[in-house]
């Protein structure tokens, strides 16, 4: 079981991710914007953060940079969710400190396997 934070402004996607990962036995905290995600990441311990890049206010990239900048969250695994498959986005994501990315539209099965892979990598 892992504690996973998901930030996406689309409630349907939040619910989809939360549902699938809950099914996989994880404990999910879902927030709707970047500020809330950053606050949650500072206040509670998480094993993994899923960040939608395009969110109103603070973007997923900004949150990722802030997470990496703060010492207590610097090593927190981050997966970015992007709607763009252009390399530019991917590069920006890795530059911001993300560990992996997943492109919309993604299948829930792909999501859970990426999450599992990331968690097992961290555990090891």
């Amino acid at each position: 079981m892992a504690r996973v934070l998901i930030a996406d402004d689309d409630p349907d996607i939040r619910d989809l991710v939360a549902f699938k990962l809950t099914q996989n036995g994880h404990q999910i905290t879902a927030v709707e914007d970047g500020m809330a995600a950053l606050r949650a990441a500072r206040e509670q311990p998480f094993d993994l953060v899923l960040l939608d890049i395009r969110m109103p206010g603070m973007s997923g990239l900004d949150v990722c940079r802030s997470v990496r900048a703060a010492p207590e969250t610097a090593s927190l695994p981050v997966i970015l969710i992007t709607a763009r498959s252009q390399e530019g986005d991917v590069e920006l994501g890795f530059a911001a400190g993300a560990d992996d990315y997943i492109v919309k539209p993604f299948s829930p099965r792909e999501l859970s396997s990426r999450v599992a892979a990331m968690l097992s990598r961290v555990e090891r």
């Binding site: 689309d10 349907d12 996607i13 989809l16 549902f19 699938k20 099914q23 395009r54 709607a83 763009r84 919309k104 539209p105 993604f106 299948s107 829930p108 099965r109």
Partner: peptide
């Protein structure tokens, strides 16, 4: 457009998969 179309598609495809997987 790509973002706005892909986001709803993610929900559509994702929920169909959940349904078809009989979760």
């Amino acid at each position: 457009v790509s973002h706005e179309l892909r986001t709803p598609l993610t929900s559509i495809v994702g929920y169909i998969e959940l349904l078809k997987d009989e979760e």
